[in-house]
Amino acid sequence: MRWLDVLRRAAARTRLVVVAALVLLSVLPGAWAGRALADVPPAPNVGAQAGRLAWPLTPRPKVTRFFEPPATVYGPGHRGVDLEAAAGQQVLAADMGVVIFAGEVGGHGVVAVDHDGGLRTTYLPVTPGVATGDQVYRGQPLGTVAAGHPGCPTATCLHWGARKGEEYIDPLALVGVPGRVRLKPWADPP
């Protein structure tokens, strides 16, 4: 009977630790909600970023347009982020992977890289400096930013996208920087 009590206490302590960890994980990301993007300290260099991905430009760029997920597969949205850049600035691989496309689409240079875990990143408009099939490492130059990204509010922007399988995701979430939070009503007003 004593062993049963010992096992019950150990199970209760384990549940308590798991619950505490889950609470911390759910609370800590919320600490970012009140901070402006400009308040987030810049990464010391592209290779030292703590997130899953590194920034594709250095120094860390200003975000000129945020990710806006489409409501439907073919619906409108912004399937990436636009980053302020200079024409000719080096575009860096956000993580190690394999280049699956380097060429033109619709008159704009594009580089796409497959990463471990079903993640794919895209960069445009760029003048590619890599070829399809090349293995790249985190921070390796992929090419240079080209002018001509439609809708860019500054002289030149890099559009940086990310997909996990078939779902477009916010690349800023993968570098540890929150995107914009949009609150929507639960139901139609009365």
Rank of each mutant, 00 (worst) to 15 (best):
R2K: 14
Y137M: 12
A43Q: 09
D170N: 15
A12C: 12
R8E: 14
V177H: 05
R8T: 12
T58A: 15
P29Y: 05
G161M: 04
M1I: 11
M1V: 13
G129S: 11
V23H: 05
C157M: 00
W32S: 06
T72K: 13
A173H: 04
A94M: 04
G51F: 05
K184A: 13
P153G: 10
P56D: 02
V177P: 00
V63H: 06
I100N: 05
G151E: 01
G47K: 14
P190L: 13
T132C: 08
Q49P: 00
V40Q: 00
G88D: 02
L57H: 03
D116S: 14
W55R: 00
A146D: 02
L37G: 09
R13C: 14
H108R: 15
P41W: 12
R9N: 09
I100D: 10
G80Y: 09
Q135V: 13
L83F: 03
L24Y: 06
A20W: 01
A93Y: 07
D95S: 09
C152I: 07
V98T: 15
E84D: 02
V111T: 03
D134Y: 12
E104F: 07
L16C: 10
Q140Y: 10
C157G: 06
A147H: 04
F66K: 02
Q140V: 11
R15E: 13
A94G: 14
S26Q: 10
K184V: 15
G133D: 00
T127C: 04
L57W: 06
T64M: 11
G75A: 15
A20Q: 03
H149M: 09
D116F: 09
L92R: 02
P178N: 07
A112M: 13
E84S: 15
D114Y: 09
P128E: 07
V23T: 14
L57A: 03
L57I: 08
P153E: 07
V175P: 00
Q49T: 11
V130H: 10
G129T: 12
G30F: 12
G51D: 01
V98W: 04
V105H: 01
G179L: 07
A21L: 10
V145E: 00
L24S: 00
G47S: 13
D170K: 10
R65E: 13
K184S: 14
L92Y: 08
H159V: 03
A33N: 01
E104A: 14
